[in-house]
Nucleic acid binder design. Structure first.
Lengths: 113, 113
DNA sequence: TCCCTATGCCCTACAATGTAGAACATATTA
DNA sequence: TAATATGTTCTACATTGTAGGGCATAGGGA
């Protein structure tokens, strides 16, 4: 735990996905959500590793859900975001925002050079 | 160079600082800019390491400026953001933005729980 | 019953980023 | 030429990011 703990970009994406999945997210669904929204290729390994780290920090909490009878398969491990996680996410988002504020955004838009 | 290169948070902060400093930024001024805007404690070592990495990736370019006669001291190494850097910055910022879009921001604002 | 397939999870290993702090360099002033 | 102000460079290590393979469990059909 660093002194100035800021979340990494991927941690932010995962947390945001969980919020959108309304605390019913699990590995695979988080992976899909991030891929769809951002257009990036995301591997499951990356998602689980991040989820574990977030849980170790107390930012999310997981529980094993009953297996839904969709087609079969293993039970899901559902994740929910804790208050501390939300707080940290907000803080991280706002830090970049603050840095961006008052900036000549012209240069940051479309094809400015 | 990862396949899906997204900039890290600190890289974004440094790049944003350079934009604000209008391509006249150098180690110390970037450090100060980030500290002032974000309120975080930032060390010079972190800034230079990041600046070097960004340069290696072709996102910024540096040149040694003539020493201004303020009080003495070493010549500054001035950095400017390259087009590729701007593009990458934009892309990174937008990725998080997209993930955030359409979200029930209520939970992300003030003290929502 | 036994496989095959669909879901989903866990683990290992390594690359890239983030962070700290000390050492080094250079110009000014006295 | 020593003291000081400004800036940069180097070393080392912690945290995050990413890839990929293997394990586990349930349904469906031969």
């Amino acid at each position: 735990m660093a002194k100035n703990d800021l979340l990494g970009v991927f941690e932010q994406l995962v947390l945001l996905a969980l919020v959108q999945l309304d605390d019913q997210g699990y590995g695979v669904s988080v992976c899909r959500a991030v891929e769809e929204r951002t257009g990036r290729k995301v591997t499951l390994g990356a998602v689980y590793a991040t989820l574990d780290r977030l849980e170790r920090k107390g930012y999310v909490r997981s529980r094993v859900g009953e297996p839904t009878a969709e087609r079969g398969g293993r039970a899901k491990r559902l994740f929910r975001v804790e208050a501390a996680g939300l707080k940290s996410l907000r803080h991280s988002l706002e830090t970049v925002e603050r840095m961006r504020a008052g900036m000549a955004l012209g240069r940051l838009r479309p094809e400015g050079a």
